[in-house]
């Protein structure tokens, strides 16, 4: 973990209530994929944890949904605004278990952390298949971005207004894959847990106090003991999850 001040380079709305935020700053403490940052905002007491979508040496991309006071405030911030971030939080995805053809399953704002993961897996020469689930056509984002990386992409919407009608699990049945990685709302994770034929890793969400393991606010029980979502998580192995 490291405290780093970032500057807002740009911010744009990429789907209904979904913002893409690009920041400039020292990203050296961020590693791999599936981790998160914790953003301090004036006037709000707790920091706001947001998963890392993508980064290079100097820039960091975050995608978030406007759902409350913190994200409303963040969406209104001007380019050039300086933000106080704690970076390098969370365990992230373990790429070593992916096999030759991993499947990435994302739901809503669970999609962003899979983007850097897809990049890293493709760089290792893996065949990456992606299933992205949204509520409706207006909520869809990053379909083309995943495709541009070289991944096979399927999109589902719950109301059928775009892509396959249904949930992510309705578009997975005929796919062959060696391993899976997923992030999304808990009902989706449960369904994916049931529907997947291989081992995999799942990323969880919880209300956090500190985001770096001090307060025990986000603990959960697993088959391998108590874990803090912010520290030993957010990524857990399929086999250790207790629903």
């Amino acid at each position: 973990m490291k405290q780093v001040f970032f500057k807002i380079l740009s911010q744009e709305c990429i789907a209904r209530d979904v913002m893409k935020l690009t920041l400039a700053g020292d990203t050296s403490a961020i590693q791999g994929s599936g981790g998160f940052v914790n953003i301090k905002m004036d006037g709000l007491f707790l920091r706001r944890p947001i998963s890392v979508c993508d980064y290079d040496d100097k820039t960091l991309t975050l995608i978030y949904k406007i759902v409350g006071k913190g994200t409303e405030k963040l969406a209104e911030m001007e380019n050039g605004t300086e933000l106080d971030l704690l970076v390098g939080l969370g365990n992230g995805y373990d790429l070593s278990k992916s096999g030759a053809a991993p499947l990435l399953i994302g739901g809503g704002v669970g999609v962003p952390p899979l983007y850097k993961l897809a990049k890293l897996l493709l760089a290792e020469g893996k065949r990456v298949q992606v299933v992205l689930g949204f509520n409706s056509g207006a909520d869809v984002f990053y379909e083309e971005e995943f495709r541009a990386l070289g991944a096979d992409v399927r999109v589902t919407t719950a109301d059928g207004s775009y892509g396959t009608k249904g949930f992510v699990t309705d578009a997975m049945g005929d796919l062959n894959y060696t391993y899976f990685y997923t992030c999304g709302p808990e009902p989706m994770l449960k369904a994916v847990h049931k529907a997947t034929k291989t081992s995999g890793q799942m990323s969880f969400e919880e209300r956090m106090g500190c985001g770096f393991g001090a307060c025990m606010g986000c603990s959960c029980k697993t088959l391998t003991g108590y874990k803090r979502i912010c520290k030993e998580g957010p990524v857990m192995e399929k086999e250790e999850i207790l629903w």
């Binding site: 709000l44 007491f45 707790l46 209300r207 307060c215 025990m216 606010g217 986000c218 603990s219 108590y226």
Partner: peptide, 23 residues
């Protein structure tokens, strides 16, 4: 002790509520 079920944290104006439960 595992402590209390989650959510254990809620934000407040100028503060927070915790219900960790002595984990």
């Amino acid at each position: 002790r595992f402590g209390n079920p989650t959510p254990r944290i809620a934000e407040c104006p100028m503060g927070m509520i915790n219900s960790v439960g002595l984990q």
